[in-house]
Amino acid sequence: MTRLTRAFGAPLAALILFFAGAWILGLIAAPQIIMIEQSLWRMERPAGSAEISVRIDGLYNRLDVLALDEAEAQARADTEGRAATLAELATTRAQIETEIAELEEQESRPVKVYTLANFTQMGTAHLAIFFKTIAASLAVTAIALVVCYPIAFAVAKLEPPNRAALIMLALVIPYAINELLRIFAWQMILNYGGPANALLGLIGIEPIPFLESGAGVFVAMVYAYILFMVFPLYNVLETLETNLIEAARDLGAPTWRIHMRIVIPHARPGIAVGCIMTFMLSAGSYAVPYIMTRGTAAPWFTQLIYNRFFEATNWNVGAAYALSLLAACMVFIFVMMRLLKVSLKDIAK
C-alpha cells in the first residue's frame, strides 16, 4: 500500500486496491467458494419421513371408514339423528383432511443436508471417463510440447528477427477466427470423406475414421491450444544467451546435449507455464471433444459436468464433479512445479 501510495497517490492507490479486491473476490474467490459450498450439500427427505408416510396412510384409511359411516347415516330413517351424525362426520373428515395436508407438506418439503455423498455419485463408468479425460489431456499436453518446442526454439534462436516476427504472426492470424469455426474446419478435414483421407487414398491407404476413433480430438486440441504452449516457450528461449549455445558447439557438444544441458534447463519456467495452460484448457474443454467426435464417442468429463448441471438439473453433483476436475488440475500444477523445480515466482515471470 505504501509503494502504491508513493507511486500513484492515495486516491488512485485506493481505487487500484478496490478494483483488484473486487476482481479477486468476485471473479476468482466467490465462484470457487460457491461451487465448493454447492458440492457439500443436497436436498433430502426430512427425518422421520417414513413414519409420516405411515401416519398419512392411516389417516386415509380413517377417511375410508368415515365414508362407510356416512353411507350408513344417510340410510337412517331418523332425520334429526341423521343430520347430527352427518355434521359430526363432516367435522371429523375436515380435521383429518387438514392433518393429511399438513403431513404431506411436511413429508414433501426437502431439507438441506451437508454431506460428501455428491462425490460418491461418480460410479465406475464416470470414474473411467474422468481418468480417460485426464490421460487424454496429458497426451495432448505432451504432443503440444513436442510440436511447439522446436518451433519456439527455431523462432527464438535460429531465425532473424524479421522472419521470426512473420512466423509468430502466421501462428496468431488463424486465432482471429472463432474457435468453433476452426474446430468445424478440422472436422471437415478429418471427416471420413475429407481431404485427409483423400490424400491417404492417393498413396493406397484405406480411409481412416479419425473422428470415430477419437484421434481427431488430439489434432484439434493441439491446434486449438498451440499458442498457449508456443508463446511461453518463445518468451523464455528468447532470453537465452546465444553465446552459451555457440560455446557449447565450439567445445564439441552434440545438439541433443546442448538442449539437455543448456536450453531445456533455461526453458523450464516456459515449459511449466505452457504445460499447465495446455493441460487445464484440454481437461476443461467441452466443444472440441463433442464436435470432433460428433457426440458418438465416450464423452469427455466436461460433458458429464454439463449434463449434471443442465440436463439432470442436479447442480450439487455437477459442482462436485467440477470440483474433482479442478482438484486434478491443481495436482497437475504442483506436480509440474515439482518436476521442473520452478516456483510461482518463476512462472509469473
Rank of each mutant, 00 (worst) to 15 (best):
L63E: 01
Y175M: 10
G270K: 07
A176I: 13
Y60H: 13
M1W: 11
C275K: 06
R6D: 11
E107Q: 15
F310V: 12
A142W: 06
I167H: 01
L202H: 09
L116V: 06
T293M: 09
L27D: 00
A247Y: 03
I226E: 06
R261S: 14
A13G: 03
R42G: 01
A142V: 09
F332Q: 04
L59E: 00
L25A: 13
E70C: 01
F279I: 07
I129A: 11
T2K: 13
T293I: 08
I271V: 13
L68D: 05
G216C: 06
Y225T: 01
L180A: 10
A142H: 05
G295Y: 11
G194P: 08
T255K: 12
M35I: 12
S137Q: 01
R82E: 06
M35N: 14
I56C: 09
S39T: 03
L66D: 00
Q32L: 15
F218Q: 03
T79P: 05
R163M: 14
E102K: 14
A322V: 08
C148D: 09
L340Q: 03
N61Q: 13
T141V: 04
D346N: 09
R257Q: 12
H259Y: 13
A67E: 04
T91H: 12
H266C: 02
R82G: 07
E70L: 03
R308S: 14
Y223W: 12
L171T: 00
Y234V: 04
W23T: 08
P31G: 10
T141K: 05
P232C: 07
L251N: 03
R294K: 11
A94P: 01
A13T: 02
Y149M: 15
G214E: 02
V222K: 05
N118C: 10
E105A: 15
A176P: 00
A185Y: 12
P254D: 06
A73T: 02
L211F: 01
E80F: 15
E44R: 14
F18D: 00
F301P: 07
F18T: 11
A94H: 03
F231W: 07
A14D: 02
T239R: 13
F301G: 06
N178P: 11
L68K: 09
A117Q: 13
E72R: 10
A136H: 04
A247T: 05
G201Q: 14
T79R: 15
L27E: 02
M122A: 14
K349N: 09
S49G: 00
G193L: 14
G48C: 11
F8Y: 15
C148T: 10
V230M: 04
I134H: 02
E97F: 08
E107P: 00
V147I: 14
L340D: 03
